[in-house]
């Protein structure tokens, strides 16, 4: 499908291709269903509670908004390099991928299931693309996010690996950012953005002096994928296509990360160290320089292979505990 929309000045315009190969088309530009098709082993995806089940949001009608048959959340099962995995994908084009009652409950159910799967199938991939809570059903969405986090950490305590893949047009903001922080591993592309409060919301609450949301370069180096990867906010960096996310996911699945006291203490040390080392920096450039990047201004334009070399040079072998 050709659903290209104008870009807002993002770095490295996502690759635009007429190719039908879902593995090579832009992840940023793709729909959630296209991403699933490109990520999983060919034809292996089977959906749970698919669109024909018509589990629509009961709340959007009164706001004059048409619903979506899947409520912007596609859940199911598939195979990744032959291994059975559960998958959930948010559709960022539908209401910004925002979490409502049905959308959230589908992920909650999937997370409750993964805990009880056979030991070798205890894996779940979340393809994030969300601005956070859906305001039209804000209370239901907010509580759903808390339920998702509880279910994730129970599943991880039972040995499940939960990976987050971030590179969609809505990014991963609000409660989505908190959910991402509960994953055992995160894969982010340059176009992926991770945060809590979006730049526009900061600007409208705190003024343009605090955060100029129109300054796209500033936005990208503050919340974008390269910055997140460099400071340890994500475990792997992918290029903007399904094949790259796929190989990163296959690799990360080999590094399980159980949720327990030890890993939480290690995460605490990691976050404390980050704050001590970088807490007074006023811009990503200053942070990257402190991390040892020779020419920070080059990072945004750096091609993926060079960026990956940079990351490998700067970071030791220690697993980013989360």
């Amino acid at each position: 499908m050709n659903e290209a929309a104008p870009q807002g000045g993002e770095p490295a315009a996502p690759r635009r291709t007429g190719a039908r190969d879902p593995q090579l088309s832009s992840w940023f530009e793709s729909t959630a269903r296209q991403r699933l098709a490109g990520l999983l082993d060919g034809g292996s995806f089977s959906e749970i509670l698919g669109p024909e089940q018509r589990e629509l949001s009961p709340h959007l009608r009164q706001f004059g908004l048409p619903p979506a048959f899947d409520d912007g959340m596609i859940v199911g099962r598939g195979r990744l390099a032959g291994r059975t995995v559960l998958v959930a994908a948010q559709e960022g084009r539908f209401l910004g991928g925002a979490v409502g009652e049905v959308h959230g409950a589908k992920l909650v159910g999937l997370l409750r299931a993964v805990r009880s799967m056979a030991a070798d199938a205890r894996a779940l991939l979340i393809l994030f693309d969300t601005g956070g809570v859906r305001l039209q059903e804000a209370n239901a969405g907010e509580v759903a996010i808390a339920e998702i986090m509880h279910a994730m950490l129970q599943a991880r305590a039972a040995g499940a690996t939960i990976l987050g893949l971030i590179g969609g047009r809505a990014g991963c903001f609000g409660g989505g950012g908190l959910i991402a922080a509960c994953c055992s591993g995160l894969i982010v592309s340059e176009q992926g953005r991770i945060g809590v409060t979006g730049p526009e919301v900061i600007e409208s609450n705190q003024g343009v002096e605090e955060f100029d949301a129109a300054d796209r370069a500033l936005v990208w180096r503050t919340v974008g994928g390269k910055h997140r990867r460099l400071i340890g906010g994500a475990d792997a960096f992918a290029e903007d296509h399904a094949e790259s996310f796929r190989s990163a996911a296959i690799a990360l699945l080999e590094r399980p990360c159980r949720f327990d006291l030890e890993v939480t203490v290690a995460e605490h040390a990691r976050l404390r160290e980050r704050l001590a080392r970088l807490g007074d920096a006023d811009d990503a450039w200053a942070i990257w320089a402190r991390l040892g990047v020779a020419d920070p201004t080059r990072v945004p334009d750096m091609p993926a292979p060079e960026f990956l070399e940079l990351v490998a040079r700067l970071q030791d072998e220690r697993r980013d505990a989360r």
Binding site: E3, T31, P51, E52, P66, A68, F69, R93, F94
Partner: peptide
Amino acid sequence: LVGVVGSGNLEALFERVLDGNACVVEVVTA
């Protein structure tokens, strides 16, 4: 299912559930 509900876009669910040559199209539009 084709498409996505978004600005300037739509989703359409096709189901083979009617008898013979009948065709029904139901539209909910913003």
